[in-house]
Design a binder for these strands. Structure first.
Lengths: 206, 206
DNA sequence: ACTCCGATGGCACTTGGTGTCAACATGCCT
DNA sequence: AGGCATGTTGACACCAAGTGCCATCGGAGT
């Protein structure tokens, strides 16, 4: 049981590491799955038992962020202004992407992954797909939080879309500046722009 | 010259029509490109001379909407509030998707295409990709319109993202209600939510 | 009539992705 | 210890998406 699980995770890590290495080095299209598999010491068939596609190796890291953000949003105090609650929820993802290991070499690898995603159409498309799922989750949580009807209220999906637009803009700026700009400051800037609409549901001042 | 062009367009239309028909009927994954090609009376190889991928047949219709929206945005009077200018720019796309032929059988085909896109992951991903391009174009135009620096100002990409969130939300509601809800009213609703942030750049009242 | 050019079709080929099966390890039960 | 169940793996065959290449055909201009 524990033995099998550990082995599975080991192989998955090996595979992901080999893939990230090769993809970052040679570009997405120039690497075949066979290459990745042999680099990790397994067969092509085994690769597909761990990842559903080539894009998945890169993007799967970000999969869990949706539920995580939703949980964080749900954990914010009920009276908190939406702009603040959403900022905190999104911050978790930004930190996960940018801040990993705070001030070490690890964030550099994260930077390169983000740049790879943003610069590869196929990866970008998958990334956008994930974001669309995140948006639905965030929207559902917002509707619940504000007692709105998810089927008719326009606010929840729009607010979630705004929050993810901020996420996206911050990520782009951060990766475009090679990590030089501060993600937290960027995110605050973005939510300052969004806040007037985000907080207008209940009233302009809270 | 004219002869060759007409023939090209004829073949492209034939291909697109056959593809849309088959895809809507059997589902995206259940249709091979060979099928589409023979249904249009050409070879698989010729299909790829007209469309870059299976997804492209469906999505290519929407390709031009980016420049169109940008042009419309550029054509709005300089002093118009961003929320209004963007609403009008986005409206063009919504109308193109939903309203085609105003009140005829044509909008029903458009509805089915939208439902196909929104319900097929592969198509959704491509659609989102296009939207990302639109956003960049809209952002560039907004920056120019407002005299903002595209490299540092957060407002343009965020505003463009908001506008496209509205587009997306409207499209989803419209397709989810099988075309029953009025796209124009939905869009107005959406921009009413967004307006406080959209119009806050220059001042809360204009 | 000759020639040039674009469109086409056929074909081989690479790659992503899946189904199937036999081999092998692990662990549990008696 | 022997036997059985479960789970992982690799090999192989297979399908479908794309792409490169070349021979061919038909139309336009000379």
């Amino acid at each position: 049981m524990t033995m099998a699980e550990r082995k599975r995770r080991l192989v998955a890590d090996e595979l992901a590491a080999a893939a990230l290495e090769l993809l970052a080095q040679k570009g997405f299209d120039a690497v075949t799955i066979d290459e990745i598999a042999v680099a990790a010491g397994v067969s092509k068939r085994t690769f597909f038992r761990y990842f559903a596609s080539k894009e998945d190796v890169v993007v799967q890291v970000l999969t869990d962020l949706g539920p995580v953000m939703r949980t964080e949003l749900a954990a914010r105090p009920a009276g908190e202004r939406p702009s603040l609650a959403l900022r905190n929820a999104v911050w978790i993802s930004v930190a996960a992407c940018a801040d990993r290991a705070e001030h070490g070499g690890a964030s550099e690898r994260a930077l390169r992954v983000v740049q790879l995603i943003l610069g590869t159409p196929a990866l970008l498309a998958r990334f956008l797909e994930r974001q669309a799922q995140w948006r639905d989750e965030l929207a559902a949580e917002l509707a619940h939080r504000l007692g709105l009807d998810p089927a008719t209220a326009m606010y929840p999906p729009l607010a979630a879309g705004m929050a993810l637009s901020a996420f996206d803009a911050v990520l782009r700026r951060w990766s475009g500046s090679d990590g030089a700009e501060d993600p937290a400051a960027l995110l605050d800037q973005a939510f300052a722009v969004l806040a007037p609409a985000l907080d207008a549901v209940v009233g302009p001042a809270s």
